[in-house]
Each structure stands twice: as C-alpha cells, then as structure tokens.
Design a protein around this nucleic acid. Sequence first.
DNA 1: TCCTCGGTTCGATGATCATCAAACCGATGT
DNA 2: ACATCGGTTTGATGATCATCGAACCGAGGA
Lengths: 99, 99
Amino acid sequence: MTDTGERAEVGSLQEVLAAVSDPVRLEMVRRMYAEGGPAPCAQLYDDVSKSTASHHFKILREAGVTDRSVIGGQTHQELRLDDVEAAYPGVLSSILAVR
Amino acid sequence: MTDTGERAEVGSLQEVLAAVSDPVRLEMVRRMYAEGGPAPCAQLYDDVSKSTASHHFKILREAGVTDRSVIGGQTHQELRLDDVEAAYPGVLSSILAVR
DNA sequence: TCCTCGGTTCGATGATCATCAAACCGATGT
DNA sequence: ACATCGGTTTGATGATCATCGAACCGAGGA
C-alpha cells in the first residue's frame, strides 16, 4: 500500500460544495462511502469515460474530499469523511444521509 | 404583504447544493439567515450588478431555498430554512454553521 | 402627469467546465 | 521482450453559466 497524496488540507467550503454539487461526483462519493475504505476507481462510476472519471476524481481530491492510494498496483479512491467532518461538521454527513 | 410565490417545492439535493456552491449566492443566504426574516434585496449583496443579483435570486428561488414577497411595494427575499431542513435535514443548517 | 427608485427581463459576451478520444505511463503477466 | 490492463494527461469541443448594460415595469412622490 503506497500513499500518493500527503494528507492535503481540506479545501474551502465553497470548494467542497462545488465538488459534491456535480451529480457524477456525488454518486462517486456515495459509493466510496458505501465501500467504507479504499475502492478501485472502476467501481465508482458508470456512464462516463475513464478520462472524465479521472477528471472528477481530481476535483474531489483537490477539494480534500477524497484521497488516492495505490494498493497492489491499482489506484484506489477513499472518502476522507473524518477530515471533512472535522473541517465542516455535519455538512458531508448530512448530504450522505439524504435518501 | 403580498405573496409572490405559491410555496414551491424544495428542489433536488443537487439543485440545492448547486445553488449554495456559488460564493455570491452563499453570501446572500448567509445574510438572509442573519436577517431572520424578509430582507430587501439591496442588503443581500455587494460587488455585483442589480441584474446579476436578480439572476442569483432566481436560482435560489427555483432551488426552493428562498422565497420572494412584496412588503410595502418593495421586493423582499427570505430564507426557507425550515422547508429545506425538512427536505434535507442538517444540510443547510450545517453549512450556515460554518465560520 | 412626470420623475425616480427598486427590481426584473432581455440579449450578448466571456469564462468555466463536463465530456470525449487519443496518447501515454507503470505495473503485471506471458 | 511484448502485450495487457487500470489509470492519468493532453487537447479539443460544446454546453452551461456568471456577468453586465440597457430596456422595461410597477409603485410612490413631487
């Protein structure tokens, strides 16, 4: 297991909100949450191309919402729920609670 | 006091998130919240033109986040916090709690 | 009646952004 | 060594959107 990112700061509230306001990205976040740990990219989306997915992953990562790691040669994405909650209590958890 | 809108539904979660993910609109929402009731448009923004502000009000209204009423001839905007909370508990309140 | 004031609507412009295909890259397997 | 597989980067395209000025509109006031 190799760390790719160095525990970046969680982005501004605006950045976080903008990140999850896109339907494709919110679905990714929901699936990561359901997974409960590092998940291989491919399981986190359908209906968009690999390159588009990679683009969305980047935006989520830069907003500090997710983290990337490499496990057994494969890239995985993980939700940084605790970090986001620490920065903006209730925001992400209440969004995930919807439905 | 005249009602302009007929208690519209609160929009989808995506709509609500998109509405508040814009800095100008989030500031508007914050000021409405601070006001605690119907507030005249002019007090809810600076740095943008009247037409831009009106555009943002419309987006907030269509997302079900705010409501419009006319008091003494003047248009006022009001936050629909209770309605949004009923639809998506904790989402808007936790955003407003930031800072 | 005419003017002003607060706000909306219209039309246009520029920027941002989601999307894709193609090329690339690192790791694994043959 | 080569091919494959998962993922990223690049470059381009089209759509969405924030922004503005100007025209418009309804309500009061002079």
